[in-house]
């Protein structure tokens, strides 16, 4: 493997691991507080764990963190990385997370009857959708600075609200409970992600270090 590619893997992992360490500490403290407040371990259901894995991998843990490394591209390119290697390292890690998360969630879906294939397909679509939005937002932040970051936070709030409240309201429509809709969404998200990745590469290639 190319030295520069490995350097980028090391660097992005270093940046991400710092945040992961904070998240793990937060999660442990949160769990301890929940247990202290009277919650029993047996009350934690498979669905809770499924949601935690999905949530952590997608929103907090890795995908957003890795994609937001776009904000570090100036420093990385200044230190002598090739643009190609930074791009490949970033998406190598993103796809590693997507594949591992899909495998873990898929395994849970297979083992536990309480998790339906429909839920699993929606999870995949959501993971890809979050990645698409984060790629676009990362480039927006890079281009527009704090303004872009504020817009990104507003979008995150909107998504959080939609997932928290909107999804439940939408699920009353029977068609959304069939496996075809989330499968189609996953395929669409895959295609859009490929297009957005190509745009990300184009923007990276034309990026001027100032």
């Amino acid at each position: 493997m190319d030295r520069s590619f490995i350097s980028n893997i090391k660097f992005i992992s270093f940046i991400v691991m710092r945040t992961i360490a904070c998240v793990i500490v937060f999660d442990v403290v949160y769990l301890l507080l929940m247990l202290y407040s009277g919650m029993k371990i047996s009350e934690i259901s498979v669905e809770n764990v499924y949601w935690m894995v999905q949530f952590i991998a997608t929103f907090v843990f890795l995908i957003i963190q890795i994609t937001l490394c776009t904000a570090y591209q100036k420093i990385i390119l200044t230190l002598g990385s090739r643009r190609k290697d930074f791009f490949m390292a970033k998406y190598f890690l993103v796809f590693a997370v997507i594949v591992i998360t899909a495998a873990v969630l898929g395994g849970m879906t297979y083992v536990y009857d309480s998790i339906s294939i429909v839920k699993y397909m929606y999870s995949l679509a959501m993971i890809l959708g979050v990645n698409i939005i984060t790629i676009l937002c990362a480039n927006m932040i890079e281009k527009f600075g704090m303004t872009g970051y504020i817009i990104f936070c507003v979008i995150c709030g909107f998504i959080g609200g939609f997932i928290g409240g909107g999804v439940g309201a939408l699920m009353k429509y029977k068609i959304l409970k069939s496996v075809m809709v989330p499968t189609a969404l996953t395929i669409l998200a895959t295609v859009v992600m490929i297009i957005v990745m190509a745009l990300d590469k184009k923007w990276l290639d034309s990026y001027e270090i100032k």
Binding site: S4, S7, K10, F11, F14, I75, I76, L79
Partner: peptide, 11 residues
């Protein structure tokens, strides 16, 4: 951290 990054990238 910056020096560490430099050590990663400069062979």
């Amino acid at each position: 951290e910056l020096l560490r990054m430099a050590s990663i990238y400069y062979p």
